[in-house]
Simulated assay, not measured.
Amino acid sequence: MLSSQTKVAGSPCSFASVTSSDKVVSSLSEDERKSFSTCLFLTTCARKLDLSSITWCTSCWLFHKFSSAVGSEDYDEYMAAMASIFLACKIDDSPIKIRDVINVAYRTLHPDRPFLEINETYSQLVDSLIQFELFLCRILRFQLSYDNPHKYLLHYLRSLCDWLYPRQETQTFCKMAWALLHDCHYSKMCVTSRPDHLALTVCYIALEALQMKVPLEEHCEKSWWKLLTHNLARRDNSLPHNVSVFVDDIQLSDITLLADQMLLLIENERFIK
């Protein structure tokens, strides 16, 4: 039974006490399963709040960053998730009303209960969420800037799609790479791994899964991800002209290690409800 108090932050109220199933057969640790389940809850709330993908990614990053910092300390993961959403909206300049955050979280956890009224419980939840948001900022030492890997992926896809053919297959490739990178935010990979390495790895997995080859790669001295090109920089004035659209400081062993972690996460997803 998870604690009904937010022990770390010392806040007086939480969203729920939940008993988790013991019959889970997966290779993920208890902390990893807990983190994944909380991100599923966070995702559900983000969709109900109509948040953008960027804000959702930022909120997942904040949650994983916080949970990594506090370790196995006793804290209410649902309050941490909603505080991450509330803070991410401020960071991405898409503010949201605190009552919407609280009502969505409460209805997601308690769909069979009556709507939450403006009463003492509601006031306690408001106070707890505000206090937890401040606590989260202090734990992260107010370092709240997220280097989102999706911006790297966009540049990589733009360059790769100029090489790949046929065109109809490149659309499937882009969708698969984007979905894989999206799934990485359900785990702490978005915190522990470099964003450009994550973006490159999902491109590698998508190419392998679709059995697509980069044309003339076998005739190059370097692998496609180490190739330096200035074409993208010339097309996009917002980028420096010495930009490298791929990563030149990553080895195949690094890519396969990240790929194994991503595929393990997807494999274990069916065990976590």
Results as ranks from 00 to 15, higher is better:
80 A>N: 03
271 F>S: 15
26 S>N: 12
26 S>K: 06
273 K>S: 09
114 P>T: 10
58 T>S: 07
82 M>L: 15
77 E>K: 14
174 C>I: 11
223 S>Q: 10
59 S>N: 09
131 Q>G: 12
13 C>M: 14
115 F>M: 11
192 T>P: 00
145 S>C: 09
113 R>G: 04
43 T>R: 14
265 L>G: 05
16 A>P: 02
225 W>D: 03
77 E>Q: 10
79 M>L: 15
5 Q>S: 13
196 D>P: 03
256 T>S: 13
137 C>R: 12
100 D>M: 08
1 M>H: 13
15 F>N: 04
144 L>D: 08
85 I>D: 02
64 H>Q: 07
35 S>I: 03
72 S>Y: 06
251 Q>F: 10
90 K>N: 05
125 L>V: 09
71 G>Q: 07
103 N>F: 08
165 Y>K: 11
266 I>T: 04
185 H>W: 02
203 C>E: 00
139 I>H: 05
12 P>I: 14
37 S>F: 12
80 A>R: 01
218 E>W: 01
183 D>S: 08
245 V>Q: 13
77 E>T: 09
218 E>D: 15
196 D>N: 13
66 F>V: 05
45 C>W: 02
224 W>F: 14
48 K>G: 07
174 C>W: 03
38 T>E: 07
88 A>K: 05
177 A>H: 09
206 A>V: 02
165 Y>G: 04
171 Q>G: 04
213 K>M: 06
258 L>S: 08
138 R>C: 05
121 T>H: 12
3 S>A: 13
40 L>W: 01
152 Y>Q: 01
28 L>D: 06
